[in-house]
């Protein structure tokens, strides 16, 4: 563990990503402190430019404080991203493990399932699900999870394919360990590094997918996310482009940080990757 931290912190980019991510998390946690009032209330003149006294990031077309909406948006955006990624990890690791561990018909059909979800354009599927079952937050989270697990499954399957023939796995089988015991006790701990790295990246993917959905105005109307802020600011590009730009920068920085951390994890945890 110490060794892991040391090696991770040697990768300066990954460390920078982690710090950046920490800052975003801090902002999200401190949102009620930074702006204790309802972020959607009108506080000042419409379309005040950034750096106006009292409104460091300006106000939108309705005179709402951009900073307040941004920090509260951080909470929902991150929450949806993490929750959706957890769903994706759960599905992805399960499907990938089964596809890689079992041979024959079971393995083949689960592999085909991964291929299937690789074939359906994620956002189109997301829009369809939302249009069928409605845009409530829980459905949005589940649907994003459902379109994001494929890359995790593909990687997990690959890891399981390489590990399942190893001596310690065969040994486990001969001493009578059950499949579940081998999968979770023997193989998964060895495969966890790359899976963790791609899982971190899936949070980034989920944030991007959610922002696309909210941007189109098809997300849950009761929550404010960064994507929705961009969507609402879209009509203002001629007069106040910063309304669009600021939440976008927030997305870019967050996804950027997650990508760097994921790269760092991969470098440290993936023994096969050479530098």
């Amino acid at each position: 563990m110490i060794d892991f931290l040391r090696r991770f912190s040697q990768n300066r980019l990954a460390l920078a990503g982690l710090i950046l991510l920490g800052l975003v998390l801090l902002v999200a946690l401190l949102a009620p402190v930074i702006s204790p009032e309802d972020p959607l209330r009108i506080v000042g003149p419409a379309l005040s430019a950034p750096f106006t006294p009292g409104f460091p990031l300006g106000t939108d077309a309705l005179g709402r404080d951009m900073l307040a909406m941004l920090v509260h948006g951080a909470r929902t955006t991150l929450l949806i991203g993490v929750a959706a990624a957890c769903t994706a990890i759960l599905i992805g690791v399960t499907v990938g493990a089964i596809a890689g561990y079992y041979g024959g018909v079971v393995g083949a059909s689960f592999t085909r399932l991964i291929e299937l979800f690789q074939t359906i354009p994620g956002l189109i599927f997301l829009l369809a699900v939302v249009s069928f079952v409605g845009p409530q937050l829980i459905f949005v989270v589940l649907a994003i999870g459902l379109i994001s697990w494929e890359s995790i499954a593909r990687l997990t399957r690959g890891e399981f394919l390489t590990w399942r023939k190893r001596d310690f796995v065969l040994a486990g089988r001969t001493i009578g360990m059950g499949d579940l015991q081998i999968i979770f006790g023997e193989i998964l701990p060895n495969a966890i590094g790359p899976v963790l790295a791609v899982s971190t990246l899936s949070i980034a993917g989920a944030i991007l997918a959610e922002s696309g959905l909210s941007f189109l105005g098809l997300g849950d109307p009761s929550v404010t996310t960064w994507g929705r802020l961009i969507g609402e600011g879209r009509g203002l590009i001629r007069t106040a482009w910063y309304v669009c730009a600021i939440p976008g920068v927030a997305i870019v920085l967050t996804v950027f940080a997650l990508s760097l951390v994921s790269d760092g994890l991969n470098d440290v945890l993936n023994p096969r990757r050479l530098r």
Binding site: I230, R234, G248, F256, L260
Partner: peptide, 18 residues
């Protein structure tokens, strides 16, 4: 590259329009 990956296409689009 990492930065471009982090930028959603629609947002890049809006910034390009601006």
């Amino acid at each position: 590259g990492v930065f471009l990956f982090a930028a959603p296409g629609f947002w890049l689009g809006i910034m390009l329009i601006v």
